[in-house]
Design a protein around this nucleic acid. Structure first.
Lengths: 142, 142
DNA sequence: TATTGTTATACTCTATAACTATA
DNA sequence: TATAGTTATAGAGTATAACAATA
């Protein structure tokens, strides 16, 4: 009858709850770390993206899974604070590349360092356990 | 020298990345499931809370980690759609209890069922593996 | 014509501060 | 006076649609 088992056994429900807790805690810590740098979550995520490489507005929207019109405003606010800048693409003058400034990259790096959430608790696990956790998560996401 | 090891080895970084991916995917699926029921994420989370038991506005704010003034608006919108209602507490007439209506509880239940994210991928893991994942997550959150 | 980015608009969520009713 | 909830206000994020510049 059940071609797709629903796994509503207590063990599965417990794991689902644990994952929900991980998600909630991760988000809290991310928002708090961003706020400590006077950034909203959206601004921090966009800045983290730009700190790797300059990107066209359109592509940023795709990676952030939002509409391009939203990116305009977020980049505006980062630009007003000197954390990002707009460049024109010489090969296609329709395109505007958003790029992190030096200060933007420094801010992004400090923010990354502040995200102790996943790192600190992991320190309590042995290498074998971390390997095991990695493999289980990979299979979950496959 | 290093009293708190920073664990920036490749394995730990890989696990951190996997957790970030889990978090991102969980949020996407939650927002999409909520949107399918014409609810925002905040409305869905509040409704899920009320579907268990009626709660004072103040307490809702604490659980949602936001200001009480925000709860007013979200409950307003749920109430306008017949998914929630306000009741007065006879023992203290300052208190207003927000409660899910029958339709609200049904919507919350359908939404819960739609959250296949954590359940479906877990179905591919054996019981021993799910036990292992549970224990590792518990130690991470300890 | 199609594409890129922006602007205009409207709605939701958010925090802060002032306000009302009750304790 | 203290507390619960609301209202007022302002800023940020979001989507949709219309628009300018460029291809």
């Amino acid at each position: 009858m059940s071609s797709t088992p629903q796994r509503t056994d207590p063990l599965t429900l417990e794991v689902v709850d644990l994952i929900a807790t991980v998600v909630a805690r991760y988000h809290e810590e991310y928002e708090e770390a961003a706020a400590r740098h006077q950034l909203t979550g959206a601004q921090a995520r966009l800045l983290a993206l730009l700190s790797r490489e300059p990107l066209p507005m359109r592509q940023i929207a795709q990676q952030l899974k939002c509409e391009p019109s939203n990116v305009t405003g977020i980049v505006d606010r980062l630009e007003a604070r000197g954390l990002a800048e707009r460049r024109t693409d010489p090969s296609d003058r329709r395109i505007k590349l958003a790029a992190a400034t030096e200060e933007g990259r420094e801010t992004a790096a400090r923010l990354r360092g502040a995200l102790s959430f996943a790192r600190a608790p992991l320190a309590g696990l042995s290498e074998a356990e971390r390997t095991s956790l990695r493999d289980l998560l990979k299979r979950m996401l496959a």
